[in-house]
Structure formats: structure tokens, C-alpha cells
Simulated assay, not measured.
Amino acid sequence: MTDHTTDEPRSAAASLFDLRTVIAVLFGAYGVILTLLGAFGTSAEDLAKAGGVHLNLWTGIGMLVVAALFVTWQRLRPTVTG
């Protein structure tokens, strides 16, 4: 019988269903959509409503940064299973 409590790599399922991964994927997906919408789909009317600020673009970039922070957090401090 072998002891599987030390130096065992994390299972793919544990990594995939880590809450930080789910949050990072959601922030990343919405961030990409908003960034593309802000970069290519902003009209002059939209800019006038927002006071000349590309809100979708900046919000999308912010969401991508948050997604990157969650991925970094998960890589640096993995969950301990077992």
C-alpha cells in the first residue's frame, strides 16, 4: 500500500472546479466581449452618453486584469486536496 498524501500532483478535476478558476473564466469571457465591443462597437452617440469615455473598453480591460489576478492567485496558492 502506498501513501498518497505527500508530493502527489493535483488532479485535473480539482484544478478545473476550483472556484477561482470559474470566476477567472467568467471575468475573462465578459472582459473579452466588453473590450471588443468598446474597441470596435462604440458609436459617437455612446461616447456622448458616457461623457467621452470608452466605458466598455475600460471596463473590459479591468475585467481582464481581475481574471489574470485570479489565475495568478490560483497558480501561486493551489488548493490542497486529500
Results as ranks from 00 to 15, higher is better:
residue 1 M to T: 10
residue 1 M to W: 07
residue 1 M to E: 02
residue 3 D to C: 14
residue 4 H to K: 06
residue 5 T to N: 11
residue 6 T to I: 12
residue 8 E to A: 12
residue 9 P to V: 06
residue 11 S to F: 01
residue 12 A to L: 14
residue 12 A to G: 08
residue 13 A to G: 05
residue 16 L to N: 13
residue 17 F to L: 14
residue 19 L to M: 07
residue 21 T to D: 10
residue 23 I to H: 04
residue 24 A to F: 11
residue 24 A to H: 04
residue 24 A to Q: 11
residue 25 V to G: 05
residue 25 V to A: 13
residue 27 F to Y: 13
residue 29 A to T: 13
residue 31 G to L: 11
residue 32 V to T: 10
residue 32 V to H: 01
residue 35 T to E: 00
residue 35 T to Q: 05
residue 35 T to Y: 08
residue 38 G to Q: 01
residue 38 G to K: 08
residue 39 A to Q: 08
residue 39 A to H: 06
residue 40 F to H: 04
residue 40 F to N: 04
residue 41 G to S: 07
residue 42 T to V: 13
residue 42 T to A: 07
residue 43 S to C: 03
residue 43 S to D: 08
residue 44 A to T: 07
residue 45 E to A: 07
residue 46 D to W: 00
residue 47 L to N: 06
residue 48 A to H: 09
residue 49 K to D: 01
residue 49 K to V: 03
residue 51 G to H: 03
residue 51 G to W: 02
residue 52 G to T: 01
residue 54 H to Y: 13
residue 56 N to Q: 10
residue 56 N to D: 15
residue 59 T to R: 02
residue 60 G to S: 01
residue 62 G to A: 07
residue 63 M to H: 02
residue 64 L to D: 05
residue 65 V to P: 03
residue 68 A to P: 01
residue 70 F to G: 02
residue 72 T to L: 15
residue 74 Q to L: 11
residue 74 Q to R: 15
residue 75 R to F: 10
residue 76 L to Y: 13
residue 79 T to G: 09
